[in-house]
Design a protein around this nucleic acid. Structure first.
Lengths: 331, 331
DNA sequence: CAACGGATTGCAACCGGTTGCACAGTGTTC
DNA sequence: GAACACTGTGCAACCGGTTGCAATCCGTTG
């Protein structure tokens, strides 16, 4: 078995309390005993047991990181930023792969079993009710990349997807396209719905511009490819606002395969500005989503909630902007 | 506070032991009390505390998942498969992002603090000594995608990188290229070294074929792009074996940007067969690495070690094969 | 009807820590 | 020299479970 408090106490010739106190910030121990204890601990290779201490302190420093999309390269960046940010603050990400499991009950139960201090739901597709289930169970939760509602009862950090839809519509119009379309992610995803709502709003308000829409089965390359093939078969629009970058890349690929010239015959604008969008064999014009800031802010919020779990829910929205590359005509 | 054993015991009118026993497999409880307890637990919304029970059982069902590459899309697939596979067996992945930290000491200490039952080191770049540090500390460990040594003292599941290097060399030769090159990942990565060793061995043994080599700073698109630019500036070879697919895609992009025709003027073969390699605007000829099998096998090995941690170290190697797409000349 | 044996059950100790409280030691003040 | 205020320390209870052991219950058997 591993070295415990008792072993160290015995060796240092002090009580277990003394050992415990030297390892807890701000406890009252004299310099002398601290030294003795440190020395004994060092010699024995003592590692405090975080789980045992969580039993009395009520803090595990475990953070549930829940995601439902492991196919979209943007999430690799998301995991990178989350894991690093959490680690820097001494928090540990317990990763949960929803893999299609839309019901929060199971993951909630599991995360409760492991007494996570908080949960980050990193998803732009799950409805607010998902994160709310955690809050209702008394688990502090932040919904990163989630839907912003006017009266949130759960913390949301992300972007205004409706506004992004508007932005995309304006961009297509400004670049001279008149027959435009929305090629969304799955219809049940909140981000799809919101982006489309904003998009349609602007198009409808603009005379002389027509609009169609369709949905890909998921946010993935294949789904984007397949749906663009469909569109082409049915007579393509002049330009597409794709639900996100990975769909855009799929759509782009289908367009090229069909011999359609991008951006002249067919324009595409994506959303996310994932790393790959800048690769010069892709060069996707897209709406930049500030994921670094969103994640940094999510982590700040989580740490704040650890100290005050009754914190009033807030929505933190970050502005997006268009990054012009090669998939929309020059104006 | 949350509902505990005591609350349930009180409500069901039994002892705490009885409650504990109804929730542990194979314990002796009568049907009657089990029913009473289940009912009381249900009504109160009782969730057993896995961390508390780990204290006596010595099992947390936490598995450390350590990785040092969050830039390579292949790892998204890796995380997806690992998290799902572990979850299916009731194990929980505690994700550790090394982010450049080559010294195992810190992550080891942290994972010990959280009493993980085992550790999976998922990396093709870290030296065997990294995983060995865990084993030396008494933590069961599997090195997935790691270097296979003739006398391993740590479990390794992966591929024979030397053989892959040979395979790549033969492919380039068979496709008619005579001036070939290795464009590797970081020189200190074990996979880079091994792939190069095999590659060079075959080239050197083949009369009339010349070989050069260089290294990218890391396994990433930008690094591949930059290094291929370098190569082109210095007079490119006819064909390249790139350290992996993401490097290949970067190199491909640089070749196209320089106006070099692929595969006629310049051939490229990658390694991994990541999803993106099959996208039709990339269509990369590459060596398929069976990551599903590697991961499934790693997980099996981990679960086996949970029951027998003294298990004799083994190396499990899976064969690779070439997937012909569009970046090597037709033979 | 008493002895017997297997199935249930509760008691109490324990897992590895934390922490309130009482007490001891030290130095200061009047 | 006594009263006082601190600082450090150990005891013991507790966090939420598990488990060895002894006691109890119940149906059988001779």
């Amino acid at each position: 078995m591993a070295i415990t408090l008792k072993d160290v106490a015995l060796r240092a010739g002090v009580s277990r309390s003394a050992v415990s106190r030297t390892f807890t910030e701000g406890a009252s121990v004299s310099e002398g005993t601290r030294k003795k204890v440190k020395k004994a601990a060092e010699e024995l290779g003592y590692r405090p047991n975080a789980l045992a201490s969580s039993l009395t302190t009520g803090r595990t420093k475990l953070i549930g990181l829940v995601s439902d999309n492991f196919r979209n390269p943007i999430f690799l960046e998301v995991f990178d930023l989350f894991t690093r940010g959490l680690q820097e603050r001494g928090l540990r990400p317990l990763l949960v792969n929803l893999s299609g499991q839309k019901d929060p009950a199971q993951s909630l139960q599991m995360l409760q079993t492991y007494s996570v201090d908080a949960v980050i739901v990193a998803s732009s597709t799950l409805p607010p009710s998902f994160a709310e289930a955690f809050r209702d169970a008394g688990v502090p939760v932040v919904n990163s990349f989630g839907r912003h509602t006017t009266n949130p009862n759960v913390h949301v950090v992300g972007i205004d997807n409706v506004e992004c839809g508007r932005m995309a519509a304006r961009a297509l119009i400004d670049h001279g396209y008149r027959k435009v379309a929305f090629l969304g992610g799955p219809v049940e995803a909140t981000s799809t719905q919101d982006r489309f709502a904003g998009f349609r709003e602007v198009i409808r308000a603009t005379p002389g511009v027509s609009q169609t829409h369709s949905y890909a089965a998921q946010y993935s390359f294949e789904a984007g490819y397949a749906e663009m093939q469909n569109c082409i078969a049915n007579g393509p629009a002049e330009a597409y606002f794709c639900g996100d970058d990975v769909l855009s890349v799929g759509a782009l690929s289908a367009a090229k395969a069909a011999g359609l010239g991008v951006p002249d015959q067919l324009g595409i604008i994506g959303l996310n500005d994932m790393e790959m969008a800048g690769w010069n064999n892709i060069s996707l014009t897209t709406i930049h989503q500030p994921i670094r800031q969103i994640i940094a802010s999510s982590i700040e919020l989580v740490t704040a909630m650890l100290n005050d779990s009754t914190r009033y829910p807030e929505a933190r929205l970050f502005p997006c902007h268009i990054v012009e590359r090669g998939t929309l005509r020059r104006t």
